[in-house]
Amino acid sequence: MEILIIFFCITMLIISAVSRIEEYIKMLAVQGFILFLMSVIEFRNIDITHFVIMVLETLGIKTIVMPMFLMYIVRKNEITRELEPYLSNFYSLLITTAIYVAGLFISFWVSGAAHDIRPLHFGLSIATMLAAMFIIVNRKKVITHVLGYMIFENGIFLLSLSMAGEMPIIVDLGVMLDLESENL
């Protein structure tokens, strides 16, 4: 379980360091798959309808449908790389790392207070949301903003995993789809 969240953080670091948009989308798919594995391990004992919905959401939408759709848009519009982000890749890697260190501190902080949650997931999910906000602020292209928002959603999903028992709501993904079609 812990190894998965470490992989998740690695994908975030890769996203902050590369500039090819197709690379982002691949990482997004990887994140979706990691979330799928995590939720399968987490929710072994829930009833079948919830399980199916969850698998559809993580494996179906987050891992397959959305990345393919984004890839289709990227190819159709011939967007290849994120030109000139406001900060260079090196600095954004540094900043993302700093955000994750802060996330670890949050983990330590909540683990002391016994709030009945998984501290590591909690801290790192908050860091993921912050890192996603940073990606949105730092990049200029609309497609990267959308990707940033998807990562933000993954952060929320991770957060709800940290609070065992909370079912992530699918509504947001529907919204996301709307966003895409409206824009492009």
């Binding site: 906000m133 609309v142 928002y149 933000f152 929320i156 709501i169 947001d172 966003l179 409206e182």
Partner: peptide, 24 residues
């Protein structure tokens, strides 16, 4: 319209996180 949807959706996602906390 794009700015409106995007910023408001992020805002609404924040509110969702808040709801997760309160429900916790």
């Amino acid at each position: 319209a794009w700015k409106y949807i995007f910023i408001c959706t992020i805002g609404i996602s924040f509110a969702f996180v808040g709801i997760i906390f309160i429900s916790k």
